[in-house]
Design a protein around this nucleic acid. Sequence first.
DNA 1: GTCGTGGATGTAGCGTCGCTTCATGGACGT
DNA 2: ACGTCCATGAAGCGACGCTACATCCACGAC
Lengths: 302, 302
Amino acid sequence: MDVRALATLRAVRTQGGVTAAAEVLHLTPSAVSQQLATLGREAGVALTERVGRGLRLTSAGNALADAAGDVAVAIERARAACDVFLGSPVGVVDVSAFQSGAQLLLPGLLTRVARLGGITVRCTDEDVAQDDFAALTDRVDIVVAHRPDGGAEWTDAGRGLRVVPLLREPLDVAVGVGHPLAGRDDVRAADLVDQDWIAVREGFPVARVLAAVAAASGSTPRVAHRINDFSVAEALVAAGHGISLLPRHTAGRSAGVRLVPLTGVRAGRRVDALLRPDRAERLVVRTVLDELVALAGEIDRG
Amino acid sequence: MDVRALATLRAVRTQGGVTAAAEVLHLTPSAVSQQLATLGREAGVALTERVGRGLRLTSAGNALADAAGDVAVAIERARAACDVFLGSPVGVVDVSAFQSGAQLLLPGLLTRVARLGGITVRCTDEDVAQDDFAALTDRVDIVVAHRPDGGAEWTDAGRGLRVVPLLREPLDVAVGVGHPLAGRDDVRAADLVDQDWIAVREGFPVARVLAAVAAASGSTPRVAHRINDFSVAEALVAAGHGISLLPRHTAGRSAGVRLVPLTGVRAGRRVDALLRPDRAERLVVRTVLDELVALAGEIDRG
DNA sequence: GTCGTGGATGTAGCGTCGCTTCATGGACGT
DNA sequence: ACGTCCATGAAGCGACGCTACATCCACGAC
């Protein structure tokens, strides 16, 4: 029962295939395949079964992968047990965030962590669909993700995902300064029919919020553009090419845009930190996470 | 954080040294030493410190060894997770027992387990002092041990020892058929002053029971011989060389001996099964243990 | 139908890592 | 002071797991 092989099995499940697993493990598909073979030989039962040109875990494979999660946690706990004797935690933590979250949180996080000394934070910005956030936890330690407030939870492919709430951000209606609604203190769903919308791509986190807002006024939104990057969307709004739903703390920095609060409908997004349970045991990771939570709390309050 | 190195660290703690650990792990002391060195390098802190010509774990080493126990458990759980898909458990289980316990339990255990099919039980008889029973759990899967009833618990050197009670056996006074007490239905402590005793060696499980019995009559026992093997002791009793305290179910088989119950003092021994927690996760081990418990229950009742 | 692609799996070969063997150096007891 | 016990270092060897390459199968395109 090699621990590395157990980790490989988990990766095959979460990534959905040998090649993808090999990717996150920095191995060749052949190595992954060989590890699965030897593991299955040891176990005495088939752990995987072919389906089409890919494969999936058998029930035995799933059971073993579940147990493998606990093994990984136990090992990281062991490492952490040493680290407490090592003074303040030291090391490198990989953080991934979607663009607007990165813009909102990463600068502050880096300065906060820099004050502690000895911890290196490596940032990546990732733009993925709602269902793909969890898979990122195989690549980095902390994933900053967002989802519609009140919407679906995170899809966790048997990973025991740790979800740490960071903040809730209202979604305001962004209009150009020349727009008829620009002077309003607030707007209702009914005020928003017959507008050109700048929305995000289908399947991406706040896509469904717009549909919900429109549904409140009994209409379907007219989508002129699909732009995932909020700052690009904001530029389009400023230029008068449509209106958009933008997060309050992140958007509204450019002069040509007004953010008008939306009343009568609950529109917002939740920003969460996602971690794989074994990674969550690492002391450096916990430290960085604590800073992230504290920072988000400050933003959330004021 | 190699799992084998973690297991080695645990063995060094429980066995109290590099050489002894190497023994139970079937390695050379050099290999153990090298594993500790690399583990300490990874951990970044010293895990061991020299004391005299041996060594002991530092506090960091102890913390890591504790965590290593959980790692071992998690891994065995993973193995067990596969075994449930494998039909009835198969494999080999090593059992160790002290002589009289072995005589009482092992024959029945072997026939019971043989009925299940596919499980090989390897038996060993071990005669060790009270404090050394726990250390045997590094060598075999199940240790059948005994201790004075009401006496000290098992000394567990940070091993998280699993203790499974098997049975309680009263200690009777064994006398030769020609002895004045042979006709009695029971005896009291006061009847036993000024007798030649056949006791067990100092530090061995039921040694203190005799002292307790004597104390009840306000005297100190006169020990003529120190014999650890109860059947040898019984032969001496039969030949009239003294009297002894012998377990009721185990002794009294030879014609020249009478077992007379002792009243007014609570004299007995408890027989327990001792397991290392990781070993206790193995499905075969659990199966054999269940049979052992059932068998002991039968003996205890009738 | 054929062809091309994507993905999993075998085989050969090589590097690396951990073991054993042997030698060294302290610490304790006689 | 010597011998013994125990942990540790250096050299060498074997084994294991990886990469690279080839093969095979399933699916989709034309």
